[in-house]
Write a protein that binds this DNA or RNA. Sequence first.
DNA 1: ATAAAATCTGTAGTTACTACAGGTGCAAGC
DNA 2: GCTTGCACCTGTAGTAACTACAGATTTTAT
Lengths: 140, 140
Amino acid sequence: MFGIGALSRDTGCHIETIRYYEKLGLLPEPQRSAGGHRLYNKTHLKHLTFILKARSLGFSLDKTRELLSLSENSNRSCSEALMLVEANLKTVSEKIMELQRIKEALLIMSGDCKGCCPSAKAPDCTIVESLFNDKNADKN
Amino acid sequence: MFGIGALSRDTGCHIETIRYYEKLGLLPEPQRSAGGHRLYNKTHLKHLTFILKARSLGFSLDKTRELLSLSENSNRSCSEALMLVEANLKTVSEKIMELQRIKEALLIMSGDCKGCCPSAKAPDCTIVESLFNDKNADKN
DNA sequence: ATAAAATCTGTAGTTACTACAGGTGCAAGC
DNA sequence: GCTTGCACCTGTAGTAACTACAGATTTTAT
């Protein structure tokens, strides 16, 4: 049995975050000392590690909750886990593509500016000018 | 002179978002009709387009505010704009790398699972098991 | 016994919006 | 001139995933 400070140190997860996960029902409520302090065991440690790992793989807390429930429920199928992973893979791939598009555009802006910088005044900078140019702007 | 609905239609930006940008001071306060409705002109349209384009390039609203102020201030230098672009480029590149790390890991998980799925029960799925494995978990 | 450190609860702040609720303005048709 | 219906108004609360307090209490160490 150990306190929240030890759990925080062992996992690298902030104390506030641990309490937050408990409030959301991701982490089971631990025992309490006579004075009301939380007392954890190794199961909690495993549980929290699972959450942190899922989070580090880009799963939302909702999806993480789903994964946790799969890990505890023998009458659910492995294919549900696969579906969650593949949905996340799709989201992540899309984000990468969007960021790559952004990166390309920024590289062009930065390259163009090398020619006008630092002699130009800011309002005449090619960067600023290209932002007034409405081509390619996202329409939300 | 046109109303907020027309500005919204022309830019693809939600009415609520336009009001939100005004509240944040990103968009100058427009004139009002006798009854209090906002009345915009072409300058507002250009301004909002600038904001949307910056946003579509991954700039935060704070950085967008900076870019706007550069666009209006002749005694600021072009190099400030370049610095903003390059800082954003760095952020975007880092995000891409992080997402690629995640994508690799998810691909491995999904590949490993193909062998156990769909016969296994969820708690024994290689995906679930690998999440209990604390190697490589982010420590916040 | 007392001081210091750890922990407690609860609320508010962060980013960039979105979604109401409940009220008023405005323009068109009759 | 009146009514109807849509556009617009303000203000508040909700979203995700936390973080940062304030102010009180408990635990631990001397």
